[in-house]
């Protein structure tokens, strides 16, 4: 409304503390990494300058690129399973009674606020070599040797899906709630069977939520460190693990910085791609 357009630029000074903080803790460190990524690291000595050694190394050493694509692949699997498991929950949340909705919402929101490490510990106790499942199966003499339930991709994907499922359900729920249910009622009153209604109305109209959820989960999965370390042991390597290792063990800052920037680029690419798709969908 025109009355509000009188609002002042004066209110913006309230941003000062946060902006100053971000400059110091957010912008400056990123610039630092950017500069370092072009430095040279030889015989444990970092030389600042404008070298492409680290980037060349990423693309030529065969390992880094492989780990990068392994991280991408894992993230895609995680995103996929979050979508498959999350969609029914969002669908039910939208149509059930307020009481059930509250319970479901608690189940969905509480993991957001539960320490990742605690949830990984829980899985460790279940999937471990002498975890609950293997113990029980051996006790019942169904197997003689523990099943490899963790320290592999399965365990990592399972645990990360557990951590990030909420981030999929909430945007899906948001998108589904904004669909006017009378549209669906209209379709079914016209004689469309439920699966037609779902495929031709509910699913397409919830696309923005699907894309938002998938982008978010994918981005988060690309940066996940803790869960692969705990659930994958040293058998599953991801880019964040590689970054951490090169800094903490080899002090190779330039190489770690270059990988961090590569991770950022990949994520930035995803964000741009997804917002482009969003625009395409909303224009339709």
């Amino acid at each position: 409304m025109s009355l509000n357009s009188d609002q002042n630029y004066g209110a913006l000074w309230l941003l000062t503390p946060t902006v100053l903080l971000y400059l110091a803790t957010f912008l400056f460190p990123l610039i630092l990494l950017g500069v370092l990524s072009f430095a040279k690291f030889e015989a444990s000595i970092t030389t600042l300058g404008f070298y492409f050694d680290n980037y060349i190394k990423i693309f030529s050493d065969g390992i880094t690129l492989k780990i990068f694509f392994q991280t991408v692949r894992l993230s895609i699997y995680i995103t996929f399973w979050c979508l498959i498991l999350g969609y029914p929950v969002a669908l039910l949340m939208r149509s059930c009674s307020p009481k059930i909705k509250m319970i479901l919402l608690f189940c969905v929101v509480s993991p957001l606020l539960t320490s990742i490490i605690v949830r990984n510990v829980a899985w460790l106790l279940i999937l471990g070599r002498s975890g609950m499942i293997n113990d029980t199966l051996i006790q019942w003499e169904l197997i003689s040797k523990p099943l490899p339930l963790m320290y592999n991709e399965f365990g990592v994907i399972l645990a990360v899906v557990h951590v990030y499922l909420s981030f999929m359900v909430l945007p899906l729920f948001g998108a589904l709630s904004s669909i006017n249910s009378s549209i669906e009622e209209a379709a079914s009153s016209l004689g469309a069977p439920f699966w037609r209604v779902f495929l031709s109305i509910t699913l397409p109209l919830s696309l923005p939520g699907i894309m938002a959820g998938c982008t978010l989960v994918f981005i988060l999965s690309m940066g996940v460190y803790l869960t692969p370390v705990i659930m994958g042991g040293n058998f599953i390597l991801t880019l964040p693990m590689l970054i951490t290792e090169s800094v903490r063990e080899q002090y190779d800052w330039p190489y770690a910085s270059a990988m961090a920037l590569m991770l950022l680029l990949a994520i930035g690419f995803m964000v741009v791609l997804s917002s482009g798709l969003q625009r395409l969908v909303s224009r339709r």
């Binding site: 803790t25 400056f28 460190p29 630092l32 940066g223 951490t244 800094v247 910085s257 961090a260 994520i267």
Partner: peptide
């Protein structure tokens, strides 16, 4: 203002550590 949410914490941690 909310961009630190989507920045992977591993990258943020790395940069902050160096600083």
């Amino acid at each position: 203002m909310i961009s630190p949410m989507v920045l992977p914490h591993i990258v943020l941690g790395l940069g902050l550590f160096k600083m």
